[in-house]
């Protein structure tokens, strides 16, 4: 039985580790989003060579750094592994809530961020490192020169022509503290926040209260059952009161035992003093205490 249990535990641990590993992988590149695209770049963003070409911006919406290296970009859904994003370039690490821009200029020899295809098909897709899992794709409508298309809010679901081109930065940059504005507009006095938050605090602690009310009752009743069982097994009379004693009683018993075992007394047997005592006789001057053996009177 013990062996079976151990085997089950081993299998369960392995399963948990496997699930954790899969989850960890899933938290990586799959969260990336194609965020903004410009097809006709005439007087907009330039690459490191000073040239202008179509570009695509990838956004990391998560709060962890994601490495895009090893993933694939393509302009052809039937050829998902068209452009391999090379490993070993530190710039492929996309910081939390940050962006990278790839130039679609068919010059991969210019560096990691230059694809081997152009934007003429008006389609871009990002595939995971296995070359099969589609992470995100975007089909772009016909666009004017120097106008970009993408997600209206970074990583959001709504797509459209963007009012400003924003390569490598937020598509919609909030110029105020959104949460503050919301509360200032709807709850200027703070009463709403106070009611909501106090309700949640009470709810959280009331849940704890309920659980431990019943956990306590369960343990008290099991303790009583155990007491009855052991009394029956020993053939003793079942005590009239089976209420669990208070901690104070046990503390007093423990203290008494401790004092007894360590020979500690509230009142000591003798008092050691330098004060002059009234009686002339003192155990200190008594010969009897200086003797190793009591003298025996021989008749």
């Amino acid at each position: 039985m013990n062996k079976i249990m151990k085997s089950i535990l081993k299998v369960m641990s392995a399963a948990v580790l496997l699930i954790a590993a899969v989850q960890a992988n899933a938290q990586d590149a799959v969260k990336l989003r194609i965020n903004e695209i410009m097809l006709n770049n005439e007087s907009n963003y330039t690459d490191e060579f000073g040239k202008r070409s179509a570009w695509v911006e990838i956004f990391n919406p998560s709060y962890a750094t994601v490495n895009i290296a090893g993933c694939y970009l393509t302009d052809d859904p039937n050829n998902p592994t068209k452009y391999f994003i090379q490993k070993g370039d530190v710039l492929t690490q996309i910081k939390p809530r940050q962006h990278v821009v790839f130039f679609m200029d068919k010059t991969p020899d210019h560096g990691t961020f230059h694809t081997n295809f152009t934007a003429e098909k008006r389609y871009v897709a990002l595939f995971d490192a296995n070359g099969k899992t589609l992470i995100d794709e975007l089909t772009i409508p016909e666009m004017d020169v120097d106008v970009s298309y993408g997600r209206l809010v970074d990583g959001g679901p709504d797509l459209g022509v963007l009012p400003n081109t924003t390569p490598s930065t937020n598509n919609l940059a909030p110029d105020t503290n959104v949460a503050n504005e919301r509360f200032m507009a709807n709850d200027r006095t703070g009463i709403g926040m106070s009611i909501t938050a106090m309700t949640v605090v009470f709810l959280a602690l009331a849940l704890l209260f309920m659980v431990f009310l019943y956990v306590g009752k369960f343990y008290v009743s099991s303790a009583k059952k155990r007491a009855i069982k052991s009394a029956e097994a020993a053939g003793e009379e079942i005590p009239a009161s089976l209420d669990v004693e208070s901690g104070e009683v046990y503390a007093a018993i423990a203290m008494a035992l401790y004092e007894y075992q360590n020979d500690i007394h509230d009142l000591e047997h003798t008092i050691l003093t330098i004060e002059k005592i009234s009686r002339a006789y003192s155990p200190w001057s008594s010969k009897i205490y200086g003797l190793r053996q009591l003298p025996q009177l021989k008749k």
Binding site: M198, V201, F202, L205, A206, L208, F209, F212, L213, G216
Partner: peptide
């Protein structure tokens, strides 16, 4: 456990 509510 009812003392939990005082903490709230």
């Amino acid at each position: 456990p009812k003392l939990i509510l005082v903490g709230a």
